[in-house]
Nucleic acid binder design. Structure first.
Lengths: 247, 247
DNA sequence: CCCACGTTGCGGTCGCGACCGAAGAGTCCG
DNA sequence: CGGACTCTTCGGTCGCGACCGCAACGTGGG
């Protein structure tokens, strides 16, 4: 009830305020937050998978998914008896990344793994992974830094591809065209490396190209990726990266 | 209790998840959201001002401020019997901007003002305002676009100053030096214009310079700003902006 | 065709947190 | 040194929402 600002303030402040609060409320629940972070791998999960992942009853998960879809964070698609769910778009993914980065400045001790299995999984993720639709982890950072050093990417005065960078992508067979409202290049703060890696249309194109041409492959069905021998050769040739930098 | 992911997933997933949920919970309350949006003007408010602004009791506001400070979104500073409160840093400001932008895609009809006074205030804000520590509104967009056209700023492949842009700032008497983790230039989506304006260190330097040299002045004690005749002359000379573009 | 499984809808329970008012601590001023 | 002001602390109330179990629905496989 006390939703009336007693001071005349920002116009449309009411709508923006309640919109902001409503959006934040979607992520304010631990279970929904877990859903969104899981979906940050860019793939589609079924409702049941998400329920098991978060450790809640299927009915609970279903209700949460409804709210997230309603709020525009997720999109759902029915296929047979499954309901596949994914993040709505790159903007949402980027928003959640930013929030997670802000929420986890605990970069001192990244939660020591308890088991050998967990340790090796953590290592694989730190080495290389996908972040929504682009590359992250040491792999993502290494590639981004190499592109910067080679003058393909400019990070000192912002974050943008250079003309040489545009040509590089074209030569690669993955020409970039401005599309919609998504920027060609943007920095995405890496969780494990605490430095920005390449995101945006260029990051997505590079990741897609790397997976399609076999430069890297997914490990199992996780978001972790591994560079292949061909990938090492290609990156050495195109970016001057020594093979050892990618292991 | 169901905090165990039944699927082995992201390492440190627990911590990140609860951190994300806790951070979002801070903004999930309408009153706290109103506080943060008010503080987006970049200035320090007293606890009482925020309480009146949001229409809650002082005791309620005090508790909210505690939580926001505890969560790292705000910093507080006691001065006499007042407690001045501001956003913690530019990163927090940017995060809230992004969230607000995502939360308010209602760009069809921006909440028609009810009174003449409100209409003129809304008009002034749309013409020019500060957004945390840089310029926004039509003023911010116009300047940003002019800088882009003049080759000082590159937006087609990302968002970065050019070398000419660096020189432009140096000639202005506001040389830019990379500092800490804040980027020199970054795009900040404008609420009213739906296009990015210049933020980051360069945006802050430009705004500071504009206010110090009298290119623009604040209207009353709001975040709205107005271009002065000197400002028109300077911007015409430095960016080729016709005076009519700024009214 | 029926059974198993993934998914959804419906009560019902329970705990967290947003709110206020009143009283207390600290500060500035006459 | 007392009064006006700002802010904080403390109890106590109340409503929202996260959760589960159970039952129903639909799909796909045997």
């Amino acid at each position: 009830m006390p939703s009336m600002p007693s001071t005349p303030s920002m116009p449309s402040s009411g709508r923006v305020t309640s919109g902001l609060a409503a959006l934040a409320a979607l992520l304010a629940d631990e279970t929904r937050a877990r859903f969104c972070l899981a979906l940050l791998d860019g793939r589609a999960w079924t409702a049941g998978e998400l329920a098991r992942h978060a450790g809640v009853a299927p009915s609970t998960a279903s209700a949460h998914i409804d709210r997230l879809v309603e709020g525009g964070l997720l999109t759902a698609e029915r296929q047979g008896r499954h309901r596949y769910v994914r993040l709505a778009d790159a903007q949402v993914a980027h928003l959640i990344e930013d929030l997670a980065a802000q929420a986890a400045p605990e970069h001192g001790r990244p939660d020591r793994p308890r088991t050998l299995r967990a340790a090796s999984a953590a290592g694989a993720l730190a080495r290389g992974r996908t972040c929504y639709d682009h590359l992250a982890g040491r792999l993502g950072i290494t590639v981004t830094e190499a592109m910067t050093e080679r003058g393909l990417l400019r990070q000192d005065t912002g974050f943008a591809l250079t003309d040489a960078g545009l040509r590089w992508f074209a030569d690669l067979g993955a020409p970039l065209a401005p599309s919609g409202r998504r920027p060609l290049a943007r920095g995405c703060l890496d969780w494990t490396e605490r430095r920005p890696h390449l995101a945006g249309l260029a990051g997505a194109a590079l990741c897609r190209h790397a997976l399609e041409t076999g430069w890297c492959v997914r490990i199992g069905s996780t978001r972790a990726v591994q560079v292949t021998p061909e990938g090492e050769r290609a990156l050495a040739e195109l970016l001057g990266l020594p093979a050892t930098a990618l292991r």
